[in-house]
Design a binder for these strands. Structure first.
Lengths: 243, 243
DNA sequence: CGTCAAATTGACAAGGCTCAAGTGCCGTGG
DNA sequence: CCACGGCACTTGAGCCTTGTCAATTTGACG
């Protein structure tokens, strides 16, 4: 089987397998999908709101986010993405993008023709179930973000965002949640939490002074995870990470 | 056919048909699903966070919302629901609820055993597609709410929420978007917009004084829809309402 | 060593919150 | 039919969290 060697799809297969049991034929179908790879540099717009979309984008390496822009010019990041994440599976059933997708750091992407993916989903229901489940998890995370941005104070919001990032990075096999490097600027954190970069900076410093975390540059070390969890009002259930 | 007479499912069939073309057998399958009806009074908890869920709840009449609660005690409504909406389709693939569902006003509900629904989805892919699309629309609405709560000022937020309600009420066949009656209290509006009820009250008055809308009790008349749309930063594309 | 983006810091302004009191509406029971 | 009670809605005053503006420092990299 070409599976184990099929590097660019390894993270995808790992994720889909964790979402729903897949058979050899399912995995084979994924590997046979036509695809093109592309490397993009930090800040590149991958999908733009209003655009007609005919490909599905998988993040293989690096980081990305999805965001919307208000009339006032304010930018709201609605999710961050790690390697293995599918960035726009919603276009399986929508033609037009209702939000933007952007690379945060440099990123390695794989594009699948949406039409082939649709065919594969029709032929292999197990893949459909896995993808559907992925959409439902996305939605659950959005709900938590509405709560985060709507009902938590600045310090808690930022702490929560950091906890989520840590938990998802661990689940994606990127290392311990106790220590990680953020790919995004403080301005990005501000856009994700509905704050300003100035205030994010202040609150990060408070969290540091309180001993919840240690920073050096963008590297974060969470000293006392249970305490951090508490002060972030973070419970990982909404991420629906398989046990 | 029993379809046209099958009153409690009419709004569901209408909605699913608008999401994906359904054949007679699909509709027949829906009508044959075992089901129980229940009427609940205003404020009833329909699903609670953490609960194991084995039924799927359809809102036939009345209004409901989904919400989460922060550590601080703050409640954040993450969506409102109108007749025809499925309140917890995510439990098709999750066992446990990650948020709460609650009736806003009195509501007529239909419950389907989740297991039968799973079987139907497996047998009738067209229904699966319609439901999947419904989930994707939910997710799109959540993204817009993250933007609304994260990056718009109080007045715009509230105006946006009203526009969304009006647009969805019209799509659900409940009347013109220019005139409608809100089922929720100002406290509910506050919990949906991440504000306090006091401030919601003040902003509603400002919107009224500015001539954007006319109120009498909970009845809202939007005088100048294009202007309201503009001051709400509202574009309905994210609702993905079929043309 | 120069450049540029990102991070940091301070002073001040303001949007929205808190607390508190009062009003109006509507259903219920006498 | 009217009095009562409860909930939602209003309104005001003062405070506080967060935003704004602007200057400076730091760090990565050529």
């Amino acid at each position: 089987m070409s599976v184990a060697m099929d590097n660019p799809l390894r993270s995808l297969i790992h994720k889909l397998t964790s979402l729903n049991r897949l058979g050899a034929e399912d995995i084979d179908g994924l590997c046979r999908l036509p695809r093109r790879m592309q490397w993009v540099k930090a800040g590149t717009a991958i999908v733009s709101e209003g655009q007609l979309v005919s490909e599905c984008c998988l993040l293989v390496d690096g980081y990305a986010c999805r965001h919307k822009v208000a009339d006032s010019g304010g930018r709201q990041i609605v999710s961050f993405h790690l390697p293995g994440d599918i960035l726009d599976i919603q276009h399986l059933l929508f033609n037009r993008a209702d939000h933007n997708v952007q690379a945060i750091a440099g990123a390695q992407l794989v594009f699948f023709p949406m039409e082939s993916l649709r065919r594969l989903v029709a032929e292999r229901p197990a893949i459909g179930r896995a993808l559907w489940r992925d959409c439902l998890i996305d939605a659950s995370v959005f709900r938590e973000w509405v709560l985060n941005v709507g009902r938590r104070d600045a310090k808690t919001r930022i702490a929560h965002m950091l906890c989520e990032f840590a938990a998802r990075a661990e689940a994606a096999g990127l290392g311990s949640p106790a220590q990680f490097t953020l790919p995004m600027t403080q301005e990005d954190i501000a856009d994700a939490t509905g704050l300003t970069s100035v205030h994010v900076n202040r609150m990060l410093r408070v969290l540091t002074k309180e001993g919840a975390l240690v920073r050096s540059g963008r590297e974060i070390r969470i000293v006392d995870w249970p305490r951090m969890r508490r002060s972030a009002d973070f419970s990982p259930e909404y991420l629906h990470i398989a046990a």
